[in-house]
Design a protein around this nucleic acid. Sequence first.
RNA 1: GGACGGUUAGCUCAGUUGGUUAGAGCGCUUCGUUGACAUCGAAGAGGUCACAGGUUCGAGUCCUGUAUCGUCCACCA
Length: 751
Amino acid sequence: MDSRYDHQQHEDRISAKWTETQAFNPDTYLATRTGAKSFSVIMPPPNANDPLHIGHAMFVALEDILVRFHRMLGDDAVWIPGTDHAGIETQFVFEKKLKKDGKSRFQFDRNTLYQMIWDYVQENSDVAVNQLKKLGASADWSRFRFTLDPQVVAFVLQTFEKLHQRELVYRQWRQVNYCTRCGTSYSDLEVNHTEQVTSLVYVKYFFIDKPDEFLTVATTRPETIFADTHLAIHPDNPKTKNYAGRQVLNPLTGETMSILEDSFVDPEFGTGVVKITPAHDATDWEVGQRHHLEIRLALDTTGKITALGGDKYAGLKLAAARQQIIDDLTASGHIDTEKTNSKYVNRVGVCYRCGTVIEKIPLAQFFIKVRPLVEPVQAALSEGKTTIHGAGHDKILDHWLANLKDWNISRQIVWGIRLPVWYQLSNKKNKSLTLTYIDREQNRATRSLEGVLEQDKQHPGELETALKNLQQLSAPIEAEYVVSVEAPGDDYIQETDTFDTWFSSAQWPVVTLKTNKPGDFDRFYPTSVMETGYDILPFWVMRMLMMGVFLTDQVPFTDVYLHGLVRDQKGQKMSKSKGNVINPLAIIESYGADALRMALVIRSTAGLDKSVGEADFKAMRNFTNKLWNGARFVKNLAETAPAATSTLPQDEAFTQHLDEIITTVTQQLHDLKMGLAADTLYTEFWHWYCDECIESAKQGQLSPTVLVAGLDVFLKLLHPFAPFVTEAIWAELHPQTSELLVATPWPIAAQ
RNA sequence: GGACGGUUAGCUCAGUUGGUUAGAGCGCUUCGUUGACAUCGAAGAGGUCACAGGUUCGAGUCCUGUAUCGUCCACCA
C-alpha cells in the first residue's frame, strides 16, 4: 500500500466496479427478498440542465449514507434517481441563451420552442447524472426517471383528470400573481416579498357637490387610478365618518367615484382614506368581492397601461406611466406635493426567479381546491404517520397547511406539461378564443378564433397554420372546455398553459414507483425517508404529502429529513455575487468525494444550516488518509506478527468497546442522526482505534488478529460515510475475495 | 403583526431521552520524526454553556421571562 491515500487513483475505478456489479440495484444484490424490509428513498431530482452545487452534494451525502446503511443491513433498499425539467428555471435560462443569439421566444411556435428546449436539456442531461455518480451516489440508475418521460407525463395528466372528476379543479377569472417579464402567472409561493423604496404621493379627489373641497388619499400606485372605482373609509372612524356615501371625481378620468365603508381600512394610516383598485391589489380585490364592485383593468400582462388610459397613457410601460401621471396630476393641482414622501419604504411582491415586481392581474386560470387535499394530510400528521425531522419545521408545515389557499397551477410557458384541457372549435361559446401564432408570412399574429375562421374562408389553410404554429391560446372565462388525456376529437384545440412544475413534482414518489418496474409501487410505497432542504418544504414536501395522500390514501413517506443551507466558513450564505460559492466538483478533485461528504455531514443537524470551508475539507481529507494509514499499518502487523497463542490483556476491552460503537452508530443511523454518527466514527476511529489501540498493539497489549478484525468493522461502519476510501482499503485487506465492501453485511454487536 | 429557530472554546459547530472533571475541527503554546500516517504524535492553554428567575438530589439539556441575531409567513394604501 502507498504511504498516502490518493483518491484520484481509486474513485473512478471503484465507481465503475459498483456499476459493473449492479451493486445499487436491489433486484441484483439481494439474493432473496423474502422477509427483507423495504427501505426506499426518492431522490429530489436536480435540474436536468444545471451542474450540481454544494447543496446537491449535501443531499447526496445524507441520502447515500442512509441507503448504503440499509443495504448493508440486508434491507430491500432502493434509491430512485431522477432529474427535473424545472419549467420556469429552464425556460428562463434558455430564453437568455436565445437572446444572446439575437432571438426571442416570440419568433417560434410553441412546438418548435418546446423541441428546442428539449434538445438543449438533452445536451446537458448527462452532466447532473455524472456528477451524482462522482459524489458516490449509490442510486439505482436502472430506475432513473426524468420528469418529462412519457410515462410520467401520462401519469400527471391522469392525475389532473382524476382531480377534475372529483371536482377539485376549477377554472376561474381571478386576480393572480403575474410576472410581466417572465410572461406567466405564479402561485403565491413563487412570490418573494421584499422592501422597496417608492414615492408615496398624496392625491386629491375633489367632491362633486363641493368642487373646491377634496379628500386626500395616499398611494404608491398612481398609475392604477384609471381603474379606481371607489374610495374607502372605516365605518367607525369619526374623522372620516361624514364622507360616507358622498361622491368624488376620479382625478384622471373625471368619472364619478363613490365612497364606501369597509372595516379593513386602517383609520390611523395616512389620511384614513384609501383608493380601491379591485383589479390590481389583493386587498382591494377582496373589497371588490364583498361590495360587488366593477373590476377594471389598468394594466395588461405585458406591464403596459390598457386602453383605459386613453390616447395619452395607453401602451405606456408601468414605470413611465407612473411618472407621467405624477407629473400631470401635479400640474393639474391634484397632488399635495408638500406631503409627498419620495423615500417611502413599502413591501412589494417580486418574482422569485427574475426579481421583477409581481403584478396582481385578473386572469382565467386553473386552480386546485386545496382544503380537501390538506385535511387528510393534517390528520395523517397528527396521527404521526409522517415524522418531520428538522428544528421546528414540523410546526412551520402545520402553519402552511392551516393557511394554504387554492393553488393556481396554470403557467403561460411552453417548457412543461400542457394541461389536458380542450376547447371545441365549433362551440359558439368558444368564438372569442384568442390565438397567437406564426402566420404563413412568418409574422406573429393574434386573432380571435372567429377571425381565424374568417381568414380561412378567404385563404384556405389559415386554420391549419394557426393550429400548427400556435404560440398561445387565450380563452375567455366563459369558454367551454373538456378535460381529457386524449384529444376528444379533430374539432378541438388544446390549452397552451402548462402545469406548475411543482404540480408534477408533487406526485414524484408515486409516479417514480408507478411508472417504473412492475411491482415497485407495492414493494416500496410508502417510501421511507424524504430527504431535502428545508427551503422547499412548502413547495415540494407539503405538496407531495397532499398529492400522495390524494392518489394513494397513504402518506408518501414515513419520515422527512430536512437539511439546512450550506454556508461558507464564516457562516455566510453562498452567492455568486459574494464569490464564496463552493463548487463540489473542485473539492472532489482536490480532496476526494469522501472528504467532501464527511465535511458536509459531520456534526450537521436536521433543520439547521451547516458551515463548511477549505479547512473542513482538508481535515476530512486527512481523515481518509488516516484511515488508509491505520489500515496499512494493521495489515502489515497482522501479516508479520507471530500467530497469537493466547489472548492479550486488552483484547476483551477492545471487543467490548467496539460493540458499543456498533450499537451507538447503528442506533444513530436508525434515528436519522447522520451528523452525530459521522462524529462518533471520526472520534472513535482516530482517537480510540489509532491513538489507543494501535499503540497498545505495538506494546504487545492487544492481539493483531483482534485489531485487524476490528478494522473490518470500522470499514463497514464508515462505508456509508466515506464509500470510496473504505472500499479501496477493503480490497487491500481482502485481496483473495472479489466481494465488494458495498455488498457486505452490516456489523452486529456480540451483545 | 404572527410563527419558528440560533445564542456552548479565538473561529465554525456537535452535545443522542437531565446524570460523573462540557466535546470536535481549525487556530494557538511547548515538545517529538525509536514498527502506519508530518495530510502525524504527545502534552497544554482556552468555556460564569446569552442573561434573569424557576422545577429537580442533580440543568448546556425541562419551564417562564428578557436580550440579541436569523429565517419564514402576513392586505397596511
